Structure formats: structure tokens, C-alpha cells
Amino acid sequence: MDGTGDRTESRIQQIRAWAGLLVVGLGDLAISAAAIWGVTHVDGSEAVAVLTSAFTAISAMTTAYFGIRAATNAAQSGGAQPLAPLGPLSSPPAAPSPVGRATSGP
């Protein structure tokens, strides 16, 4: 096997990462443009509200992208181990054997 499948998968992941970053960047630019337009068309206290909302939206979107990207990278690198399947839940654990235990008697 020549590893072509690995290179293809790696290339797909790289394209997804760049596409996601492009979408986040364009979204941030759109929010910034809307905030600039809003600030130029409103009064003082309303401008603060527009800027605060824009900053919150940009921060949330950018943080979400990088958080999801980091979690995806960690899962793909083998950091996440699958859990072993459990046995049937219908059988209760065995009770300890009374043999060999000291008992108090009369």
C-alpha cells in the first residue's frame, strides 16, 4: 500500500480547516462592517451597544471555531480512546464468599 488514502484524507482535512477559517474570517469581516455602519448611523450610547454586540459576536464565533478545531484535532490524533464495551447488565456482581472469614459466636 502506498499511503495514497492517508494523503487524500490529510488533504481533505486541510481543505476543511482552511474553508472553516475562511468562513469565520468572512463572518468576522461582515460583522465588523455592520458594526462600523451601525456606529456611524447612531448616537453615543447606542454606538456602545452596537460595538459591544459586534465584539461579542466576533469573539463567540472565532472561539467556537478554534475550540471545535482543537477538539477535532485531539480526537484525530488518538488522544480520545474508545471505551471498552461492558458486559450484560442483567447479572449482578458476585457476593463475597463467607469461607475464611472469622465469625463471632456464643
Rank of each mutant, 00 (worst) to 15 (best):
residue 1 M to Y: 06
residue 1 M to R: 09
residue 4 T to C: 11
residue 5 G to Q: 06
residue 6 D to G: 14
residue 7 R to M: 15
residue 8 T to R: 11
residue 8 T to K: 06
residue 9 E to H: 10
residue 13 Q to R: 12
residue 14 Q to L: 14
residue 14 Q to T: 12
residue 14 Q to C: 10
residue 15 I to V: 13
residue 17 A to V: 11
residue 17 A to Y: 08
residue 18 W to Q: 15
residue 19 A to I: 05
residue 20 G to Y: 07
residue 20 G to C: 10
residue 22 L to T: 15
residue 27 G to D: 02
residue 27 G to L: 06
residue 28 D to S: 05
residue 28 D to T: 04
residue 29 L to T: 03
residue 29 L to R: 03
residue 29 L to S: 08
residue 30 A to L: 15
residue 31 I to S: 03
residue 32 S to M: 08
residue 32 S to G: 11
residue 32 S to V: 00
residue 35 A to L: 01
residue 39 V to R: 10
residue 40 T to M: 09
residue 41 H to L: 11
residue 42 V to F: 01
residue 43 D to L: 11
residue 43 D to Q: 10
residue 44 G to E: 11
residue 45 S to D: 15
residue 46 E to V: 10
residue 48 V to Q: 00
residue 50 V to A: 00
residue 51 L to E: 00
residue 52 T to C: 07
residue 57 A to N: 01
residue 57 A to Q: 01
residue 58 I to V: 14
residue 58 I to F: 02
residue 59 S to L: 15
residue 60 A to C: 06
residue 61 M to A: 07
residue 61 M to F: 07
residue 62 T to V: 06
residue 62 T to E: 01
residue 63 T to I: 14
residue 64 A to E: 07
residue 66 F to Q: 06
residue 66 F to A: 05
residue 66 F to M: 05
residue 67 G to Q: 02
residue 67 G to P: 09
residue 71 A to N: 10
residue 72 T to S: 13
residue 73 N to L: 15
residue 75 A to W: 06
residue 77 S to T: 07
residue 77 S to G: 13
residue 77 S to M: 09
residue 79 G to S: 10
residue 80 A to D: 10
residue 81 Q to Y: 07
residue 82 P to Q: 01
residue 84 A to W: 08
residue 84 A to M: 11
residue 85 P to I: 04
residue 85 P to T: 07
residue 85 P to R: 02
residue 85 P to D: 12
residue 86 L to E: 13
residue 89 L to S: 13
residue 92 P to Q: 06
residue 94 A to R: 05
residue 95 A to H: 03
residue 97 S to K: 03
residue 98 P to L: 00
residue 98 P to M: 01
residue 99 V to L: 14
residue 100 G to C: 02
residue 100 G to I: 04
residue 101 R to W: 08
residue 101 R to A: 12
residue 103 T to V: 15
residue 105 G to N: 11
